[in-house]
Nucleic acid binder design. Structure first.
Lengths: 339, 339
DNA sequence: CTGTTAGCGCTTTCAA
DNA sequence: TTGAAAGCGCTAACAG
């Protein structure tokens, strides 16, 4: 027992030799791809234990043509929004014994295309695209070779499976909530003009106004880009427009945070003076001051579904899912309009 | 020109044949591992373009023994704290043409060990361990085979390179700031007892008190676990202890957020009634209400350095780095003590 | 500078 | 059930 600890660098061939069987048998035992007699199975198990053997995934991939790896193309690996979703993807993949290869496109469509090519060169078995800007033409060649699941965006020319939530309905619910509280002059902090979700949320806002017979006014809409800084700017712009308003619906939580701060700086109280609603229900939103009323989108669930979807597709099963439900979470940033 | 678009599934051998050269020449051209004559280079380039060829990374890895992949073992891929750091790691690796393989250990040392084994089986060229709990014995066999860089924790028995920040000094600065504002009864919301950084921060807090001749009192220390919920609980506990205090230093920003909300709920104003300081300077901290005074730790930089470090180690270079500097960021959650 | 020759460690027919 | 043999697509000596 004086030998050194065996590092896990043994090969399948060595296991076979020690077990006195052929490499194929070891392989079959490992993959369960065929029955192995009890006697040999035990011999193989013993040899594996003795050598502390772990299969080399690279070799396995080359031989089998499968890497058990899924590429996950995201906009920004560090955004609070993508986080929850990524966690869902990771859980789904780990569960199915796949490993996620995360890469970020940094909101740039050509960088995204390049990253996708990289994933393809690494021979991932499938791809999850989170909120991509990449053009359909750049996806097409890859989509021919492997399953791609889109999240938060549908392709127009390609017809790839996608996981979506009902953004429009969510925005409708948020606006509706404000209207029910008696608010009429409801400002909207919009998201990026070219962002699918952002557009849907604007439509939902308009739906609710229309339904309530409230006129839609451009002057009450300010554009932000889903981040805090521009949320602050949006408030400034809204105030400068001199259109009075008693409530603000921000197209995502991050811009709501920015709005909240801008209001605070001007000594405008939330919710006493202005009611504020966000969208996403980021983990932080329950800990804001005051805790933010917002539309909960099941980010983790979205990721989980996406992960499970690619796996299904990779393994030849079929898959489809209706848009995931969203839900209004009423916390402390909204109050009835004061008369 | 009526042929179908070639999908990128061509092999190096095909390129060689079309270019009329040997596979080795193509390989050499691709890797720049030796000079190739102009004539052949052009032929190869033409063939590559024609076939839309991209090297198969899996085959390359098997043949070369290198995967150009670095494993990144983190506690929680979805924590706002790790995010910035992960972004740094990603940037460093991408720059050096490596790809990160992120896996999370979920704060569980045996799960971490398993994940590390998985990375090893996937033959990553190196590993970055972010704030791991994994035991030295579980790291050892892997550390023998490949470079491992530790972040936010040093190994005792293994002597692996690590990237650290001066937590103790940071905590000292934070506490010192409060003392300079005239505060004497300064509560501390500590982090997990077994967390290296948390301990250092407690020490820094004590350093500053001692230096100012202020007695350290257990009753002013409440334990949290670096998350909002327990930060709230900590405030409750502090208040119930009936020890008056006029300032709170929380061992990280997330627990400070929780503290802030707990104070708000009790109608205690920040900073007028109680001054609050955090630690980390998460991206959100500049958008809190009020914006949080905190100790900035260069999370992105930490990640970047860690990424660059593994790459250096992988490529045989040496590496070492002193603890990264931390800096007090004074915002609006602190005020002089009222008399 | 270039081609030939062996593999890298595993999977997968094909026969037995 | 099992083994032999032939690769997966690329790199890396070794000659020339």
């Amino acid at each position: 027992m004086s030998d050194t600890l065996p590092d896990d660098t043994a090969t399948l061939g060595q296991v076979a030799r020690i077990a006195g069987v052929s490499p194929s048998t070891v392989s079959r035992y490992l993959n369960g791809s065929a029955r192995v007699s009890d006697a040999r199975r035990q011999a193989v198990e013993a040899a594996i234990a003795q050598l502390n053997y772990r299969p080399n995934m690279v070799a396995r991939s080359l031989a089998s043509g499968r890497t058990s790896t899924v590429g996950v193309l995201t906009q920004d690996i560090a955004s609070p929004f993508f986080n929850e979703a990524l966690r869902g993807v990771e859980d789904a993949l780990t569960e199915a014994r796949y490993a996620p290869l995360f890469v970020s496109g940094h909101w740039d469509s050509s960088e995204e295309a390049e990253r996708l090519a990289l994933l393809s060169a690494r021979r991932v078995d499938g791809v999850v695209m989170m909120h991509g800007h990449i053009r359909d033409e750049d996806i097409a060649p890859v989509a021919k070779r492997l399953p791609i699941v889109m999240v938060g965006r549908a392709t127009t020319t390609l017809d790839l499976p996608s996981i979506t939530i009902d953004n429009r309905l969510g925005a409708y619910k948020a606006t509706r909530h404000l209207i029910e509280l008696g608010h009429v002059d409801i400002a909207f902090i919009a998201g990026p003009a070219d962002h699918h979700d952002a557009l849907q949320r604007l439509l939902g806002y308009q739906d609710a106004l229309r339904e309530a017979g409230i006129e839609y006014r451009e002057a009450l809409v300010a554009r932000a880009d889903f981040e805090e800084a521009t949320g602050m700017l949006a408030i400034q712009q809204l105030i400068e427009s001199r259109q009075p308003f008693t409530a603000v619906f921000a197209a995502n939580d991050q811009s709501a945070y920015g709005a909240r701060l801008a209001l605070y700086r001007r000594g405008i109280r939330v919710p006493e003076d202005i009611s504020l609603v966000g969208f996403d229900d980021l983990p932080h939103s329950s800990y804001c001051v005051p805790p933010l009323t917002t539309v909960r989108q099941p980010a983790y669930e979205v990721g989980l579904q996406a992960g499970q979807a690619v796996v299904k597709l990779i393994e030849g099963e079929d898959f489809s899912l209706p848009p995931l439900a969203v839900e209004l979470v009423i916390r402390e940033s909204t109050l009835p309009r004061r008369r």
